[in-house]
Amino acid sequence: MTLVSPTLRDEITANMRAAKARMWVRIKGGNRELTHYIAEVVLPVLTIGAYVILYKTLGLPSSLGAAVIIGGAMIAFWTNILWNMSAQWFWEKEMGNLEMYMVAPVSRMSVLLGMAMGGAINTSLRATGIILLGVFVFQVPFQVHDLLVAGLVFLLTVISLYGLGMVFASLYMLYGREAWHTNMLLQEPVFFLSGSYFPTIYVSVIPVWLQVTATLIPMTVGLDAIRRVTIQGQGLMAVWPHILALIVFIAILIPVARMALNYMENLGKREGRLTLRWQ
């Protein structure tokens, strides 16, 4: 008896089905408990509220409150990327699922793609809730003149962020407890560098070296572009450098994720760490 090699079409179909299956698990798992959805919308609004009140206390314009709401919504994506994308192989290892992914006849990248699509859909639902609740509670102004550009910038930002999440997921593959600590480390510093809670990182008060460092994070670039389009009412001419930068991020991050994944998987196999739990 001879084994028939799958055709390219068979392989693509199998990988797409794997991505869809992983996405479905994520969507189902992320939305099965209403309390989680409510908490994930209300919790960021509490923090956003604190910053909006701080701006009012300092006598600053209310448009800055709108900037914080957008920042809060994007933080939901960053948090999702850290805990449900980057650390996902760690969780899967703890639960004993990682070895099943390893023996499945599909690329690990398709599993990551499914996680990313499911995570992006789940988090978009939450980000919408955060923006609607934030606007309702704090009555801050938005002005979107070009919905298409706003949508494009948002989409590119999310894809580049999940691309970064895929890179992290590969690097985290062999992590034990350090996965938790690394995620904690990557929260507040990225909130700071991306200017999530203050109007923009690109102002003269912020040292240039800090602005350059911050630009290496896709969220900084995407957040600035989204704010320009949705709060200042600017159009394509104002954000085309941002769009270009986000495309470059995507073009670099996805192949890097694939290389990192292969490297870490091989390393894990050599060192026997892929199924190691409770480290």
Binding site: L58, L60, I206
Partner: peptide
Amino acid sequence: IVAFIVIIG
């Protein structure tokens, strides 16, 4: 984060 809010303000 909070210090820069005050400084930017």
